[in-house]
């Protein structure tokens, strides 16, 4: 049997990770998850325009994507929206996280459910609701010019991002030793000083991780942005969607590869920052 040849010591009944079929399944799944993305990245360096066969290495697609004003505008819009949304989401989410960690109050369970609503509601329902609302109050139809026309998208992104930030910040605060705060107060610090010099430094990894989460959520969002963007406020995913409907071209691959690189770097950073917390909690 192959499994016998594979293993040096006899396989224990609970050593599932050494079963050949499990290894194969794991490998097949990773192949299924990664090969389309690998093909996409590889073809962003392909010289063929038709994106079907590999012809040779080039960086030309990146130049084409960079020189496409629509694509570049959409990319800029995405980054501006992500930055603004991250800033406000981190602030509001941090406050809510702190509040939920700190206080007990009547109706807390209901309040938590209320704060989790944007996470739970189907994205498309939230998207069309915001679209109807923004058109109703005239935010999408009035011609305010760039960059003010990005406002509705930023508002929408904050609404679905900050509940996630509050969850991250709250789970970070659970590890806080309340005696530190008492010590600070004993030593004569007032409430603000205690907050600024004791709580905030402890919160920081949670805030940074929450901010990176908000950033990727905003950068990645397609559905809600699709319904809240106007002709002058197209984001990168929305632009790619309209291009993909017309066909598959290598400059989309190039632009997508850049976006993948940005999100992967942000994710790895976020994980690095969160890792010590988990270790400390043990």
């Amino acid at each position: 049997m192959a499994a016998v040849l594979w293993n040096r010591t006899p396989q224990g009944p609970l050593e599932y990770s050494r079963r050949l079929w499990l290894k194969l399944l794991l490998f097949a799944t990773f192949f299924f998850l990664y090969s389309p993305i690998a093909v996409l990245i590889a073809f962003s360096f392909n010289t063929s325009k038709r994106n079907i066969t590999w012809q040779g290495f080039t960086l030309n697609n990146y130049v084409v994507a960079w020189n496409n004003p629509d694509l570049l505008d959409a990319f800029t819009n995405s980054l501006i929206i992500a930055f603004c949304s991250t800033l406000v989401s981190t602030l509001i989410g941090g406050m809510v996280g702190l509040q939920l960690w700190r206080f007990r109050f009547p109706g807390k369970t209901a309040y938590e459910a209320f704060m989790a609503l944007p996470i739970v509601i189907p994205e498309i329902s939230m998207g069309v609701a915001l679209m109807a609302f923004f058109i109703r109050i005239g935010w999408l139809t009035s011609d305010v010019g760039w960059p003010l026309n990005l406002g509705p998208i930023i508002v929408a992104h904050i609404a679905f991002s900050f509940p996630f930030v509050s969850i991250v910040v709250r789970s970070r605060m659970v590890g806080f030793n309340v005696q530190l705060e008492e010590a600070s107060r004993d030593l004569g610090a007032n409430q603000w000083q205690t907050f600024r010099y004791v709580l905030v430094p402890f919160m920081k990894p949670g805030l940074v991780a929450g901010a990176l989460l908000a950033f990727t959520l905003s950068l990645d969002d397609f559905v809600i942005t699709y319904f809240t963007s106007g002709p002058g406020s197209v984001t990168f995913p929305v632009k790619v969607y309209s291009l993909v409907r017309r066909g598959v071209t290598p400059d989309i691959n190039a632009a997508s590869t850049v976006l993948i690189a940005i999100t992967v770097i942000a994710t790895v950073l976020a994980m690095k920052l969160q890792a010590p917390t988990k270790a400390a909690k043990g």
Partner: peptide, 19 residues
């Protein structure tokens, strides 16, 4: 490796699968 794709844009992943 398992959760990394989850961070890659949904649209890009769908587009990759389409291709």
């Amino acid at each position: 490796i398992t959760i990394l794709p989850f961070w890659i844009n949904l649209l890009i992943r769908t587009y990759a699968l389409l291709a």
